[in-house]
Nucleic acid binder design. Sequence first.
DNA 1: ACAAGTCTTGAGAACGCTAACAACATACGC
DNA 2: GCGTATGTTGTTAGCGTTCTCAAGACTTGT
Lengths: 351, 351
Amino acid sequence: MARGRKTVTIRDVAEDAGVSLQTVSRVVNGGPNVRPQLRDKVRAAIERLGYVPSLAAQRMSGSRSYIILAINDRERTLADWRERRGTDWVDQMLLGGILTCSKHGYRMMVELIDTHSDHVERELGAAISALQPDGVILTPPHSENALITGLLTERGIPFARIGSNAPGPGIALTMGDEGAAHLATARLAELGHRRIAMVAGPAQYSLSGWRIEGWKRAMRELGLPSDGLLEAGDFGYESGTRAARALLDRNPDCTAIIASSDQMALAALEVARERGLRVPEDISLISFDNTPIVRFTQPPLTAIDQPIAETVSRAVEQLIARGPDGADDAVIEVAAALVERLSTAPAPGSA
Amino acid sequence: MARGRKTVTIRDVAEDAGVSLQTVSRVVNGGPNVRPQLRDKVRAAIERLGYVPSLAAQRMSGSRSYIILAINDRERTLADWRERRGTDWVDQMLLGGILTCSKHGYRMMVELIDTHSDHVERELGAAISALQPDGVILTPPHSENALITGLLTERGIPFARIGSNAPGPGIALTMGDEGAAHLATARLAELGHRRIAMVAGPAQYSLSGWRIEGWKRAMRELGLPSDGLLEAGDFGYESGTRAARALLDRNPDCTAIIASSDQMALAALEVARERGLRVPEDISLISFDNTPIVRFTQPPLTAIDQPIAETVSRAVEQLIARGPDGADDAVIEVAAALVERLSTAPAPGSA
DNA sequence: ACAAGTCTTGAGAACGCTAACAACATACGC
DNA sequence: GCGTATGTTGTTAGCGTTCTCAAGACTTGT
């Protein structure tokens, strides 16, 4: 077996092209002061030998590591996965991240970290020390964890916080949860609905609050009361069942529900069915997330599409563009869209 | 801003513990010949300083890179993603991989690579040169690409091929596609079905062939003819529609369909509906994959669960356990299971 | 008690790359 | 034509770790 054919190093290229190591390095990194003639010669040698710089060596020599680290919540990810709920969030994040990273010669790594306070510093610290990433992407519920943002700030590593619009340290990227909830509510009102209920997410996620805000603002603007029309779940199916039942028990006149996750919307759909309510004839449903499952339910659900991939992509681009020193704070919004399917219709008796 | 607090290196630990670099290195890597007293002293220093070895430096010094690289097909992944079909496969793979990697102090990286022959060597070669992974995990359709396995063999990098049971180079991990198809077919026969059709995957994937084999073997063992009951799709929804229509046109007496992917099963479900066939009363349906969507269709689908996460986990463990030299070939099978839901029932008119 | 081993520790080189600096060539101003 | 800015190339050191090899401290057998 032709095992272990020696790796092509920068030295081999230098030799082949008849120049010094440094010149090759300059060509590889797009250095500014190289004569075109030499540059082409070096490029030819690189091509011929199939040279690719070693990431480890680059990192060692004090330059960038070309790694972006994405932090996900271990508990949630594992629960989603174990119960085969699907982890579309991870998917979207990964794909958006990988694609954008590779466009810039970077790589993305995913790390699962416990939210528990005594673990979080150890685990994140270890990951950072081992990988020395050029940037970190934080996803909920880590996005507003002061322990984490503090650690990253202290170590001088640029980071982006997904799903947060609190103008704290680092780059905050939000999907405009307030606006999205407002959009959904307004659309339902447009269809003639007056009693529009909201199944919110857990208070631990700040986006839950923003969605409630958006819903309340829309109701207020339309002169509709929102009292008694709010329930909270934990994004999971069971909590959605509980919330939908409570909501319908309390408001028999409710004709529309906005659920803060697809799972909870699915639960609401089932609760409606168990009570003999037809969707969308008797009650309309809008969910948040727009994961693949909502296209295959009966009826397919109208949903707010979370542009997770695009958001993460933007985050990566910011991180890379700003480089090691540009950790300036910023708030960026990537707009969500309403995808209308068959779970929404004019309110019963309207028009 | 307390920017850039210096990283803790092995030198700091050595100084703190009053020993040489080498001793610390030995303790960190579980070296065999260190006196317990010293070992504890060094461990205490590591703990106190929060030392974590730099991955880049470890790699540089010629030891392992502690990185496992997973290769996915770019085209398929992007298509799945763009059309929001969901990429459950990526999910499962990633999670199974990450979890097992981190258990052993490894990391997993995902790379999307084009199947096109002129790209594949360049792209994979570049990824390998840059990352220098300790092992590579190949997923279909790369698992049996001779260009890829050749390149890896030549470079002496151990690799695992997921979804292949061809006893070629490297470790082949199969989910027992032949057995799984046999299982599904036998179960349907048990329910009284005689005309059991198969919507297979594309021939490009060898597992498609194995599934056909399993189905044919079961039919043969049961003394049932299988002629005219086979159609092939490309795993996608549209191809499933075409296949199901062709199948039902040709075999009005068909009472059961096994589809080689959830998407194609969904399509078959829709085709049945459009022809006024009730599932499962008139026709039973079994799909392959068991992604999250099949739990939420009407009715929920009986499915063969692909133990992707477990398979990848096994692959990672093999790769790590064998180390840099143990590239011995092997074939490992992780059994798939049949998850019965509501799309299967006794054949019409039976019992 | 002495030679021959084994265990334990340390010193120095090496991995592949880039930063910082030095050296040389070329251009420009007067 | 000489000094100074600017462009181009090469040289050296160092990043943090592990490997190789050597030296010292213990054993053990006779």
